[in-house]
């Protein structure tokens, strides 16, 4: 199976451009969440969007709970698809977990991306000695339990909490719908892999020029995490944007576009 099929890769924007932007989506969403942001760049750049295996319209047969219990497997997929499209020196824009998988891909295959943008990404969600991740293990255990006992009830609580922006309920509804479209066992595995991950050590192996975009209010990723990334990624800049919730690219796209334009 080739990567185009496997990851439902979409190529849009300026096909002749030498400059490529690769957008990676986060948990519970898919490539359609980039629709507002990519508009601002489609004239000048070649734009690659894709669905992570297990999400959106990726090939169902490509998913395995074993293989995708490691974020490196997602990173390997990014390497494979960029190789297949012959992409080099591109810019990788990763939301949430894709910020990390993009970084892992870059560590393994240095020539693919020259710049990285992390949007509300986190190398570790659990609090630790001297580290604020935002969650305690007991919070997450509770979350896993609810997820296992009644997935759809969990979705209806999780979606509005993580989306924020209560004045725009359609956003939480969209997120709830894309969560509901996931196979519950896949959602459970993926959610657990992400929340239990710890990639703080990998930050040191990473040396690409980076922009860290962070909503000022996000229940999944506190501002301290963005500051930690900024401190531990050598060549990085922190850009706080005035946005509510974990998904600024859909709830405050203009803010995200403004931030991206300062960097790309």
């Amino acid at each position: 199976m080739n990567s185009i099929e496997k990851n439902n890769v979409t190529i849009t924007g300026n096909q002749d451009s030498k400059e490529t932007l690769v957008f990676g989506h986060g948990f519970g969403t898919d490539q359609t969440y980039w629709r507002f942001v990519i508009k601002a760049f489609s004239e000048r750049y070649k734009i690659i969007t894709f669905d992570n295996v297990g999400a959106g319209k990726s090939a169902p047969a490509a998913y395995s709970n074993n293989k995708y219990s490691h974020l490196q497997s997602y990173a390997d997929d990014i390497i494979d698809l960029t190789e297949e499209l012959d992409i080099k020196d591109a810019v990788f824009i990763g939301h949430s977990v894709s910020g990390i998988t993009g970084m892992l891909a870059s560590i393994k295959a240095a020539e693919i991306f020259s710049k990285h943008i992390f949007i509300n990404a986190s190398p570790r969600y659990l609090n630790d000695d001297g580290y604020i991740g935002g969650f305690e293990q007991s919070d997450l255990d509770k979350l896993y339990n609810t997820m296992q006992s009644n997935y759809h009830a969990w979705v209806s609580g999780f979606a509005p909490t993580f989306m924020g922006n209560p004045e725009k309920p359609e956003l939480a509804i969209e997120f709830a719908n894309s969560l509901s479209a996931l196979r519950p066992d896949i959602a459970y595995t993926v959610c657990k892999v992400i929340f239990q991950s710890d990639h703080r050590k990998d930050l040191g192996k990473f040396n690409k020029k980076s922009l860290i975009i962070q909503s000022i209010k996000d229940i999944a990723v506190p501002i301290e995490v963005a500051m930690y990334l900024n401190k531990n990624i050598k060549d990085s800049t922190l850009f706080k944007i005035n946005a509510d919730g974990h998904f600024p690219h859909i709830s405050a796209p203009d803010e995200v576009i403004k931030a991206l334009k300062t960097f790309i």
Binding site: A62, S64, K67
Partner: peptide, 8 residues
């Protein structure tokens, strides 16, 4: 080989 597509 843990399953059809997972070689660890």
């Amino acid at each position: 080989k843990e399953d059809e597509i997972s070689e660890k």
